[in-house]
């Protein structure tokens, strides 16, 4: 499969729609754990990304699309998801150099670097009840499969691993971030950050399935 800047733009625009559909659900999860604004924040961030993408319609370098998306997300939201996603997008972009066409291997390196970027900025581990409970299992699954499995199959397995990670956050006690101050009261609700991270990777799978 070959993906170019235009494909990435169309994928990101699908994320914008998905986040818009799910924003009330994300905020509802966050009301039980934090200040109740996760859906609002993600929506503000991806709307800024959407606006930026409309300015970049002639851009050929995938890296530029990704880093511009990351910076516009960051500038629109701040918060904790701002630096986390910006670091992910920038690291993903940097892994691609000046490429205009991405091969299967480039697509894996985009996503493993994306998770590396978020992980490096966050410092959270699996089990801390964060966005990384989705993203780390997703990345590890990508690394475990090989080219011969085919790209859609590999992402399908990885997204499934991310989904289990997200679902496990329901039974976790938060160890990091604002919700960690709730102690045991944080158990019983899925982590909103892990949930929106799942939407982002799941939307990528649906997108490549549709090609």
């Amino acid at each position: 499969m070959n993906l170019n800047a235009d494909h990435l733009t169309r994928y990101l625009k699908t994320v914008v729609e998905k986040i818009e559909e799910e924003k009330n659900y994300l905020s509802e999860l966050d009301r039980k754990l934090g200040d109740g604004d996760h859906g609002v924040t993600m929506s503000i961030g991806f709307n800024a990304v959407n606006k930026k993408l409309d300015e970049l319609t002639d851009e050929k370098k995938v890296k530029t699309v990704l880093t511009s998306a990351g910076m516009s997300f960051l500038d629109a939201v701040g918060s904790s998801v701002g630096p986390l996603y910006a670091s992910g997008f920038i690291k993903a972009g940097n892994a691609l150099g000046d490429k205009e066409e991405l091969t299967d291997e480039d697509i894996f390196s985009l996503w493993t670097s994306f998770v590396d970027g978020v992980e490096h900025r966050s410092g959270a581990k699996v089990g801390d009840k964060t966005i990384l409970d989705t993203l780390i299992p997703f990345r590890e699954s990508l690394k475990e499969t090989s080219d011969s499995d085919g790209i859609v199959e590999r992402f399908s397995k990885a997204v499934k691993a991310g989904k289990s990670g997200m679902e496990e956050t329901e039974n976790m006690q938060s160890n990091i971030g604002r919700s960690s101050r709730l102690g045991e009261r944080s158990i019983g609700t899925k982590d909103p950050g892990a949930t929106s991270a799942y939407l982002i990777i799941q939307t990528f799978l649906s997108y490549i399935e549709s090609l």
Binding site: D37, T41, L74, D75, V77, G78
Partner: peptide
Amino acid sequence: VGNIFASPPPS
């Protein structure tokens, strides 16, 4: 100044 209850971004 950040958004409501959210840290301002670096810029």
